[in-house]
Design a protein around this nucleic acid. Structure first.
Lengths: 205, 205
DNA sequence: TAACAATAGGACCGTACGGTCCAATACGCA
DNA sequence: TGCGTATTGGACCGTACGGTCCTATTGTTA
């Protein structure tokens, strides 16, 4: 039962990340998921909107597994984990040559004003993402300067990555993201308490 | 002749920045610009696409006048100008309560993959923006560390701002952008050669 | 006054879209 | 065997969209 649903979800996720939500028609999804017709599709989803919501959830779950999970690795130094996470974002984008951008950022830009249902769900996604970074930052507190604002810094990291991914997509040039990743690591390293005791600043040489 | 065109352009700009390009119909524009009908509209524009291109151009011109112009003020210290520019971006967003986001970023996310014509025009917009920052950075070279990469740093600034504006829009909270603006200034200040000689770091207290 | 752009109003067209409804067949499992 | 779910196929509907065409009526200005 759930198998065909996932197949549809995956097909839709690909289409939506390529063309956006509005420009992806239900018929496109049906064709791509090799369903027999609309009845078949509407047997699994009550509307295109519901499909969109579930695609968003699924995209976040994938991102949580393949990206955010790194932030919680218990055996690695927290700030090192943050660098690894940034590397993972770059790696994820590399898979599509930087052409797809962020599934969250794309939907956000497309629907934030037009569709409140999506807006709140995307907001929740960013919040969950930010909270992961915040708890990592909390964990790294002993290494960080006293005045580090975890809320602000976590937002900055996400904004920089989302902006970088967007520009990469527009320029069709992965090196944009790579360069910004380097700078972002440097910015994070700027917040460590004792730079000489922290070898992270070698990352940008 | 050109007056009515501008009226249409402005109405379309507002609608597009509110709902996106795809979700803005020609009839919406006609209604908003108080035209009598389609003939009237198509008397001025040969297609919706042409309208979209011109809206984008006009948005950039406005941004160039009200934002980028600050980067060229000859009587102000270049790095100070950069801070003022960031403030101006925040101020521009405040006008809409952070609800509209960046006209470039929005179109980029919506159309970069689906519509090559828009993609290249948006790419050009970002490039012109980046080049303004690059020449400012070049001007500020004596105050900056030797290893500052102007191309990379200019991209970082734009990405951070675009990402910040996007998140602000999703969260409907201007303080997101304000916080990121503070951090971005700090990041820029990180690149100055002699921090004690440069009072800019007081900006974040 | 002649020429031309601007304004007005509306009919029309082809296409695409999200969604509904219905009838029939296959399939898995108790 | 029978019951529910999965699957197939297609007709159909209302709406919205971008765009065309045609006809008139207003300015404007050389």
């Amino acid at each position: 039962m759930t198998e065909r649903r996932l197949q549809i979800l995956d097909a839709a996720a690909t289409l939506i990340s390529e063309r956006g939500y509005t420009s992806t028609s239900v018929d496109d999804v049906i064709k791509s998921a090799k369903l027999s017709g609309k009845s078949h599709f509407y047997h699994y989803f009550k509307s295109k909107e519901e499909l969109g919501y579930e695609v968003l959830n699924r995209q976040f779950e994938r991102f949580a597994e393949r990206g955010l999970a790194i932030l919680r690795e218990p055996m690695i130094d927290p700030l090192e984990r943050l660098n690894l996470f940034i590397d993972a974002v770059v790696a994820l984008q590399s898979e599509s040559g930087g052409r797809r951008g962020s599934p969250f950022g794309n939907l956000a830009a497309e629907l934030a004003d037009a569709h409140e249902g999506f807006r709140v769900r995307i907001e929740a996604v960013f919040e969950r993402w930010a909270s992961q970074i915040r708890s990592l930052l909390w964990e790294a507190r002993p290494q960080l300067q006293d005045d580090v604002d975890a809320v602000r810094l976590s937002r900055f990291i996400i904004a920089a990555l989302e902006g970088a991914v967007l520009m990469t997509r527009v320029k069709r040039d992965l090196s944009v993201l790579e360069g910004i990743a380097v700078d972002l690591k440097r910015f994070i390293a700027m917040h460590v308490r004792d730079k000489s005791a922290w070898p992270l600043h070698r990352h940008h040489e």
